[in-house]
Nucleic acid binder design. Structure first.
Length: 566
RNA sequence: UGCCUCGUGGUGUAACUGGCAACACGUCUGACUCUGGAUCAGAAGAGUCCAGGUUCGAGCCCUGGCGAGGCAGCCA
């Protein structure tokens, strides 16, 4: 465990686990589970839960199960099962052979339902959904008992079996727990345990036409698997009495009961400039506001992966935001900070120009090419060096030249000398404009003695620019992403509007970039830093003759910050 | 006029279970630099939602307010 000096403070879950471990509550065992419903793609909020559940298991020498909460066949699909498994593995976690489904337990659940009927604490209700709803009361008003509540055990057993056999159409009957229609906790007002759905299930096919509700499946699934700590988000807090109630009525052995599973709730992750609801994410996909679940602007795991995030960065993020019970909204900047920190250490550096400005080196021999050595990663010299070709015609970034520069502009301007990274010092001699007066190219001279980037006379230049040789550069489609929403809180909109009106119309801009030839061999998923610009990765849309590159995140830019202020 | 949970710098998370609030991110300085990146050094920023109470002493305990979130699917 952790007996070391720095001892990071424990979150409340860790405190509970350590206490339980000390008291040998579960015979010193820890077993958690990650229980997604396969009805959508996983997002960064799930990543927090995955990291927590697998992380606790790892930290305390336990295991973590993967269990699909597949109790509602009409919403679920294998497509989602597959994507969820892929995402969890990609994040770096493994459930080994412990891949379970709530549907694995349908038989057992059915038996337990009959047991509750026999105990007189469950009954078949003929009410329609509307009637059930109308008699449930409100949070401030008690509900009314159903007239079917006092059916005999025999009748209930018979009816329930007929429900199972498919004798009744959808919605005509439900099995309910007999608890307390006046309970201040709505979930205890005779909650529905089973409903009829003549729908085929992605795993059990047409074997069943009645399906258990979440509340009647989750706690028991935890119990069957021997989960010690069932971690979920805050909205399930009010379900806990019910979670316990079902178990109370199912477990008859005091010894088993002593170490049985317990639910603990933590606050879900929220990010600003982002929506996290599966329903809304689905809407974005279905209505074509983004290009699929893995659109790099989506907060889905698959979107982040395609955007160029690393699992390490996401895990670090999950670790650093912590776990507590209070509502929180985390700055997306912090997520990006964690990413930059990771990529800074590992990303191969190359040069690429996004908004090219032609530079002609007047005194450089026509047709000649020079190979200059460039460092692949200044943070890690084991990554070595590469050669970058230099020639008479180059591209630099438009923003790196100003005809009439302000005080603190360190880059190129008429008469000024700057360094081209790993290459030469150049001095701007002339600015050439087109008929409209736009700068079309600039003429410079270079100092051959500054080859490699330093001048023998020790003179200094204030600016260093990235560049690319025009004749050697590889063209690529570069996709520049920005946040999907313009508002910090996308749910804040005017009356009559919805969250879609907060979509950022400029969340994706595409441009043609010129990149140094070493990218030619890059494969989808490869990540690198374009010096001075940001981190980028190769998109799977790339083909052998067309490179598509995503901008993952920009570098911090203190010049931009300065100019934005004034 | 119900129940549950929560309320600590701008944002998160801590405070050895009562000893005058720490860490990270952000912000602002400065140093260094062949990425205006990275790195390094430093600063500002909360007196812990409010009001009482217990105590020598409270962010931690008690009482009462106020505020936020959750709960009325045959969704999970």
């Amino acid at each position: 465990m952790n007996i070391e000096e720095p001892k990071k403070p424990l979150n409340f879950i860790e405190e509970i686990i350590e206490k339980d471990l000390k008291n040998k509550k579960h015979n010193g065992k820890i077993l958690t589970r990650f229980p997604p419903e396969p009805n959508g793609y996983l997002h960064i909020g799930h990543a927090k839960s995955i990291c927590l559940n697998f992380g606790m298991a790892q930290k305390y020498g336990g295991k973590c199960n993967l269990r699909f909460d597949d109790t509602n066949p009409v919403k679920e699909d294998v497509e989602y099962v597959d994507s969820i498994k892929e995402d969890i593995h990609w994040l770096g976690f493994d459930w080994e052979d412990r891949e379970f489904y709530a549907s694995d337990y349908f038989n057992q659940l059915y038996e337990w339902a009959k047991l509750l009927i026999k105990k007189g604490v469950a009954y078949v209700d003929d009410h329609s959904a509307d009637e059930v709803s109308a008699t449930r009361g409100t949070p401030t008003l008690p509900g009314q008992e159903s007239p079917f509540r006092k059916r005999s055990v025999e009748e209930n057993l018979d009816l329930f079996e007929k429900m199972k056999n498919g004798d009744f159409p959808d919605g005509t009957k439900v099995l309910r727990a007999k608890i307390d229609m006046a309970s201040p906790n709505m979930h205890m007002r005779d909650p529905v345990m089973y409903r009829i759905k003549h729908a085929s299930h992605h795993r059990t096919g047409d074997v069943w036409c009645i399906y258990p509700m979440y509340d009647f499946a989750h706690g028991q699934s935890d119990f069957i698997e021997g989960i010690t700590h069932s971690l979920c988000t805050l909205e399930f807090e009010v379900h806990r009495p019910l979670y316990d109630w079902f178990l109370d009525h199912i477990i008859d052995s005091p010894e088993v009961n002593r170490s049985r599973t317990h639910q603990f709730e933590f606050a879900r992750l929220n990010l600003n400039y982002t929506v996290m609801s599966k329903r809304l994410l689905l809407q974005l996909v279905r209505d074509g506001h983004v290009n699929g679940w893995d659109d790099p602007r989506m907060p889905t795991i698959s979107g982040l992966r395609r955007r160029g995030f690393t699992p390490e960065a996401i895990r670090d993020f999950a670790d650093r935001v912590g776990v507590a019970k209070r509502e929180n909204v985390i700055d997306v900047d912090f997520l990006e900070h964690c990413l930059r920190e990771d990529l800074n250490k590992r990303a191969h550096r190359i040069m690429g120009v996004l908004n090219p400005l032609k530079v002609v080196i007047e005194n450089y021999p026509e047709g000649e090419t020079d190979e200059l050595e460039a460092i692949n990663n200044p943070e890690d010299d084991t990554m070595g060096t590469r050669n970058v070709p230099f020639s008479k015609v180059l591209y630099i970034e438009q923003e790196d030249f100003m005809e009439d520069p302000p005080k603190k502009f360190f880059r190129l301007a008429p008469g000024r000398e700057v360094r081209l990274r790993y290459a030469y010092f150049i001095t701007c001699k002339e600015v050439i404009k087109d008929k409209e007066g736009n700068i079309s190219e600039i003429i410079c001279t270079y100092d051959p003695a500054s080859r490699g980037g330093n001048s023998p006379d020790g003179r200094k230049v204030k600016g260093t620019l990235h560049w690319v040789s025009a004749q050697h550069a590889v063209k690529a489609e570069v996709r520049l992403y920005d946040r999907l929403f313009v508002k910090e809180d996308p749910y804040e909109y005017k009356e009559g509007e919805n969250f879609l009106s907060n979509l950022n119309p400029e969340s994706l801009k595409t441009t043609e970039g010129y990149i140094e030839p070493s990218v030619k061999s890059a494969q989808p998923g490869d990540k690198f830093q374009f010096e001075r610009l940001g981190y980028f990765c190769v998109d799977p849309d790339s083909t052998p003759d067309k490179l598509v590159i995503n901008r993952t995140v920009t570098l911090k830019d203190s010049w931009a910050k300065m100019t934005n202020k004034s």
